Amino acid sequence: MAHHKSAQKRIIQTAKRAERNRYYRTRIKNITKAVESAVDASDKAAATDALKIANKQIHSMVSKGFIKKTTAARKVSRLHKMVNAIEA
């Protein structure tokens, strides 16, 4: 265990950040899976609704500083491509 007060604080901060990061990583995976499952079912309406939610959630993570803007744009773009491929 840490002997200095600053080291103890650092351990607490790291644990908090790890928990927060785990939550957001899981959230991104679940959002993406929702869109993918709607696309696999060829349900355009459900896929579009899931995509709207995904777009909003992913970009809110950018504003919180969890992911970079370009990463969010890439993820959303890939989801858009999948949803648009339903029509083809």
Results as ranks from 00 to 15, higher is better:
48 T>W: 04
63 S>Q: 09
33 K>I: 09
50 A>S: 12
54 A>W: 09
43 D>G: 00
1 M>H: 03
31 I>C: 11
56 K>T: 10
68 K>N: 07
70 T>G: 04
65 G>A: 14
22 R>T: 12
71 T>E: 03
54 A>Y: 10
68 K>F: 02
1 M>L: 09
45 A>G: 05
22 R>E: 15
84 N>G: 14
10 R>M: 12
23 Y>A: 15
62 V>C: 07
14 T>P: 12
26 T>A: 07
59 H>Y: 00
43 D>P: 12
2 A>Y: 11
31 I>Y: 15
47 A>V: 02
51 L>M: 13
80 H>K: 15
32 T>M: 14
46 A>D: 15
87 E>F: 02
36 E>P: 15
36 E>R: 12
18 A>E: 07
15 A>Y: 08
23 Y>H: 13
52 K>C: 11
35 V>F: 11
65 G>F: 00
72 A>V: 06
1 M>T: 03
12 I>M: 06
18 A>D: 13
16 K>N: 04
17 R>K: 07
26 T>G: 06
31 I>S: 13
15 A>G: 15
73 A>P: 01
37 S>L: 06
40 D>Q: 12
64 K>Q: 07
29 K>Y: 10
23 Y>L: 13
52 K>E: 13
86 I>W: 14
74 R>L: 02
59 H>P: 08
25 R>G: 00
60 S>I: 12
11 I>L: 05
13 Q>M: 09
82 M>Y: 10
6 S>N: 13
84 N>D: 13
68 K>R: 09
41 A>P: 10
77 S>A: 08
76 V>N: 06
13 Q>P: 07
65 G>T: 02
12 I>D: 03
40 D>H: 08
57 Q>K: 15
40 D>G: 09
7 A>V: 06
66 F>V: 00
7 A>L: 10
44 K>L: 11
9 K>L: 15
73 A>R: 12
84 N>W: 10
39 V>R: 00
75 K>M: 13
81 K>I: 02
18 A>W: 00
44 K>T: 06
37 S>H: 03
82 M>C: 06
80 H>L: 15
70 T>V: 15
88 A>W: 01
74 R>Q: 05
71 T>H: 04
69 K>M: 07
5 K>A: 07
14 T>W: 04
3 H>Y: 10
16 K>S: 05
27 R>K: 07
84 N>C: 04
80 H>A: 14
36 E>M: 05
83 V>C: 02
24 Y>F: 04
22 R>A: 11
51 L>Q: 08
64 K>F: 05
